[in-house]
């Protein structure tokens, strides 16, 4: 079974995020005739040769693997669009450009399984890598601005995989700042040593059983 992730900080494993991305819709051009599929996750088809049809990515990849279709590269994966995104991404130091929530996983799956259907493959691949790098650098510099007064961090347009990567750092940093900034912590410095646990004080608890 695809790795069940540790429920503590890394909420989803990378395969789990990919699993979610596989439900995104893409357009395929089948080369076979096939009746409509009435599945639990939705109804797709019927399929006719050379007539485009929308299916979830996992279905597209499955058909592609068997040589039954070509996958149409999504619009946002064109050199033109990605160049624009990369430029805009470099221009603003704080904001993220709108891209599909699962752009990392979708592009990766298409590179892996449908590379012959992607026009300008190498260019597209390097553009997406560059975009990822620029965005991740922004996330990293963003982490530096977190302080004790940070109650909310806005990350509009951050994608699923980026969320997943930054989650442990972000959550731990925010939690630490929050804990040290709480009024109880400032008013009553914790006395070390054999003092009895104070039951009345519901403030920062002594974590006797670190989990």
């Amino acid at each position: 079974m695809a790795g069940q992730s540790n429920p503590d900080l890394s909420v989803f494993s990378a395969p789990e995020v990919e699993f979610l991305a596989e439900d995104e819709m893409v357009e395929i051009v089948p080369n076979i005739r096939m009746e409509a599929l009435n599945m639990i996750c939705g109804d797709f088809g019927p399929f006719f040769p050379q007539i485009a049809s929308k299916v979830p990515l996992w279905l597209a990849v499955a058909l592609k693997k068997r040589g039954k279709c070509t996958i149409r590269t999504p619009e946002w994966m064109s050199v033109e669009r990605l160049t624009q995104v990369l430029e805009a991404e470099r221009e603003s130091s704080r904001e993220f450009q709108p891209l599909p929530f699962h752009y990392v996983e979708i592009s990766r799956l298409l590179f892996d399984h449908a590379h012959d259907d992607i026009p300008d493959l190498y260019m597209v691949r390097s553009l997406i890598e560059d975009i990822r790098d620029v965005r991740f650098h922004k996330v990293e510099t963003g982490l530096e601005t977190i302080s004790g007064r940070t109650h909310a961090v806005k990350l509009k347009n951050l994608s699923a995989m980026e969320v997943n990567i930054v989650r442990p750092f972000m959550v731990r940093a925010l939690q630490a700042f929050y804990r040290h900034d709480s009024p109880q912590m400032i008013q009553q410095p914790r006395t070390m040593g054999g003092s009895r646990p104070q039951a009345v004080d519901r403030g920062p608890r002594r974590d006797l059983r670190p989990r």
Binding site: M39, C41, L63
Partner: peptide
């Protein structure tokens, strides 16, 4: 092919 596609849908659910 059809059977295997349904099986995949089933496995995902």
């Amino acid at each position: 092919l059809v059977v295997s596609l349904y099986q995949m849908d089933l496995d995902r659910s």
